[in-house]
């Protein structure tokens, strides 16, 4: 017993000693959990290529915002963009790093992935618990040929505050004034009905287990758990499948410069091919950082990721930022993010 303790302690000290120097040069970031898998994957490849590591803690968007304001990390990450006033107040610059798609998933006997079509107002009514049965005329009208059961709709939503919820309810509020006034937009909201499950995996599991249920998850989780996603009718009235192209179309059609810090929510964007529930996630850095070198390293990392990270993003079912937006982001770094003498860091 004692031996093991000694060996374990020695091992721990050795490990600590081995990692300590590496940690010193690491880029530190904290925040949103939605992009955590892709950030760590990028960090892995980046470290192999450049020797510089990234220490990203997925503590949630709220935590990321607090940490960057307190200057304990080099960059913060958030799924809900900060307003121009908030950015100015704390001297922060904001840019989107990567995107993803949110899909509605259902569990209905005899319905296969992509067979059911839903539009925004109907989805809002379902989540308001105003449409209570699957064979409701509103759903049947959108799916004339589907055999919908006389079954109660069981709603599954996220129990933890999340960017997925933020983007999903933002979309529902865009298309349904009723939803906006009754529920509203936030990272967690007061749902009128249903059960809350923790994380994308929790929602995916509950929908998978419960017949007659509907939930919303990141697209990657719908694929991994072989759940039945629905098609959506977008702002242009076209029926679209959730694909990387449809997510990219939403991003390409968005007017990124309409909001300070690229804080555009990609929900309900125009365009025939746009997926209506596309979501971006943002990075926050100080415009005049105390440690200019560290922020420079962080920007270098994201520049590398914009250039070389597309394949990794595709593999994990994230959507890389369009070329046009990346060019604009990098130009804004040169303009806005400076060291103490006013010289651009990037």
């Amino acid at each position: 017993m004692k031996h093991w303790t000694v060996i374990a302690a020695a091992g721990f000290i050795a490990a600590a000693a081995a990692f300590a120097p590496a940690n010193a040069a690491d880029i530190s970031g904290a925040g949103a959990s939605f992009p955590y898998p892709i950030y760590t994957k990028w960090a892995d490849s980046y470290k192999k290529e450049t020797g510089n590591g990234l220490n990203y803690q997925s503590i949630g968007s709220g935590g990321g915002i607090k940490q960057i304001q307190a200057k304990t990390v080099t960059f913060g990450a958030t799924d809900a963009p900060l307003s121009g006033a908030d950015l100015d107040k704390h001297g922060l610059a904001q840019f989107p790093a990567v995107m993803g798609g949110i899909v509605a998933v259902v569990n209905l006997d005899g319905i296969k992935p992509g067979e059911l079509t839903i539009d925004g107002p109907t989805l809002a009514k379902i989540f308001l618990s105003e449409i209570k049965k699957w064979n409701d005329p509103a759903i049947q009208k959108l799916n004339p040929s589907a055999k919908l059961p006389d079954q109660a709709i069981a709603i599954v939503h996220r129990s933890d505050g999340s960017g997925t919820t933020y983007n999903f309810v933002y979309y529902l509020s865009e298309v349904s004034p009723d939803f906006k006034s009754k529920v509203g937009v936030n990272t967690s909201v007061q749902w009128p009905a249903g059960i809350g499950a923790k994380g994308n995996e929790g929602v995916a599991n509950n929908v998978g287990n419960t017949k007659g249920s509907i939930g919303y998850v990141e697209y990657a989780y719908a694929l991994q758990n072989k759940l039945t996603h629905t098609k959506m009718i977008n702002k242009s009235g076209k029926t679209v499948e959730p694909t990387a192209e449809a997510f990219q179309a939403a991003a390409a059609n968005a007017d990124w410069n309409s909001q300070p810090g690229y804080g555009v929510i990609l929900a309900n964007q125009p365009g025939d091919a746009s997926w209506p529930m596309t979501a971006a996630t943002w990075i926050l850095v100080h415009k005049k950082p105390v440690d200019a070198a560290a922020t420079g390293e962080a920007l270098k990392f994201f520049a590398w990721a914009f250039k070389n990270g597309d394949k990794a993003a595709d593999e994990l079912h994230y959507v890389p930022m369009p070329e046009k937006v990346v060019t604009s982001i990098e130009a804004s770094w040169k303009k806005d993010i400076t060291d103490a003498t006013g010289k651009p860091i990037f």
Partner: peptide, 18 residues
Amino acid sequence: APGTTISATIANEFTEAV
């Protein structure tokens, strides 16, 4: 029916509470 407890609420919502 689904419900919640004090500790579950804190665990669920504290990270994203803004």
